[in-house]
């Protein structure tokens, strides 16, 4: 963050980023819903080089049973990176402290969107596996997980989509890539319910002024509305593929 940050140039002379993007430009995002046979809901997301797959199981009976909640659904969430998903040396398959924390904040980013209280004593499990990581994996995971939850038919107030706002060479930039996250001056992942405009995840490291935080939230909102369109497109595509039931046909 300090010292070494200056060593890697993240912006070209004409103000473009290393991958040719403008500061407020998202990487290419493609989402596919319903990619797994066994899961009740699933989704696959590619955001730039990030590749993440999400499976949702439930609502179902809680195991172990004593974890069941009398007043709402138990949402469980596991974010995990495959050992070969990282650019650096092989990551140990055991959960790291980073993954433990990210699993928690992703769960808390999804919970506001779900009608948890409608499903007491049940559980829904969200399993997230990062196949290839290139920065902003936690927010891309949230974007995909919301689609997987919708694909599973879980009643929701809204979808949830996320984007990271970073600071590179003193300027705010959206959707940090791995190298920008590593050498930039700050990273602020933000997730929102796009339609309701409410923030469900917000974290930050690095240094930001009050004005930068306000600006970052606005930038995030705009980017999240774009991701929301892709989420809806993926869900519509998935269900346009389901053949309509003919009158008189046995289901």
């Amino acid at each position: 963050m300090t010292g070494e940050a200056a060593a890697v140039k993240l912006l070209t002379e004409d103000g473009k980023r290393l991958d040719g993007r403008a500061l407020n430009e998202l990487r290419r995002c493609r989402i596919e819903a319903g990619v797994l046979k066994n899961a009740d809901g699933s989704a696959y997301i590619e955001l730039g080089r990030n590749k993440i797959i999400v499976a949702v199981y439930g609502p179902k009976e809680v195991h172990p049973r004593h974890e069941a909640l009398p007043d709402r659904m138990l949402l469980r969430c596991r974010y995990s990176m495959l050992p070969f998903s990282v650019a650096e040396e092989r990551k140990s398959p055991a959960p790291t402290r980073r993954e433990v924390e990210i699993s928690k904040v992703i769960r808390e980013a999804l919970e506001p969107a779900i009608f948890l209280e409608e499903f007491p004593r049940t559980s829904v499990d969200v399993f997230i596996e990062v196949i290839e990581a290139d920065g902003s994996t936690r927010v891309a995971s949230i974007t995909a997980a919301a689609v997987a939850l919708a694909d599973a038919g879980i009643p929701m107030r809204d979808l949830v989509a996320g984007v990271s706002i970073g600071k590179i060479e003193g300027k705010l930039a959206i959707d940090l890539s791995g190298i920008e996250d590593q050498h930039g001056e700050g990273d602020m992942p933000i997730a929102m319910m796009p339609r309701l405009g409410e923030v469900t995840l917000m974290q930050a490291d690095g240094r930001f002024t009050r004005e930068e935080i306000v600006q970052a939230l606005q930038m995030a909102r705009e980017a999240i509305l774009k991701l929301y369109e892709e989420q809806k497109r993926a869900l519509k595509e998935r269900y346009s593929k389901v053949p309509p039931v003919e009158p008189g046909e046995e289901v």
């Binding site: 808390e108 919970e111 469900t200 974290q203 930050a204 490291d205 935080i213 306000v214 939230l217 909102r221």
Partner: peptide, 20 residues
């Protein structure tokens, strides 16, 4: 008075105005 870390927690959400 620069912000050097942020963390939202809990099952609820914040509006943009509430964060400010």
């Amino acid at each position: 008075n620069h912000v050097c870390a942020v963390q939202k927690g809990g099952r609820g959400s914040f509006t943009l105005d509430e964060i400010q």
